[in-house]
């Protein structure tokens, strides 16, 4: 039940980000400076945290999507679907543990 809510909310968030992301990338057809100005704001601490949230949303949506496919097609997975929810959160935690220190040091430390 909760994963259903998570899947929908992360999906909507990713959709709206994607629309904005195509629009900001379209600035490469305006001029290098226009693009660099807007991308420059993505390197600020506030957007750095937004990006971390975006990666979190994508990871959760992706791993839970795989769980949905498995539960739909594999009787064993259907039987153990509650355990697979914890696998989703476990993989998500691992990915964030790998991503966050590096990303946040890029954003805050200029490393």
């Amino acid at each position: 039940m909760w994963m259903w809510v998570v899947h929908r909310t992360t999906g909507v968030a990713i959709f709206f980000f994607l629309v904005v992301h195509v629009l900001d990338t379209a600035l490469v057809r305006v001029s290098p400076e226009a693009y660099n100005d807007v991308i420059g704001t993505y390197k600020t601490p506030i957007y750095g945290i937004v990006e971390a949230g975006l990666v979190a949303a994508i990871a959760l949506h992706a791993f839970n999507g795989i769980r949905i496919i498995l539960v739909d097609t594999w009787p064993w997975a259907l039987k153990h679907q509650r355990a697979l929810v914890w696998v989703v959160w476990g993989l998500f935690a691992l990915l964030m543990i790998g991503f966050l220190p590096r990303h946040l040091s890029h954003v805050f430390g200029g490393a």
Binding site: P32, N36, I39, Y42
Partner: peptide, 9 residues
């Protein structure tokens, strides 16, 4: 350099 490397070039 992660997000810092992204620019027009």
């Amino acid at each position: 350099d992660g997000v810092n490397q992204i620019d027009f070039a």
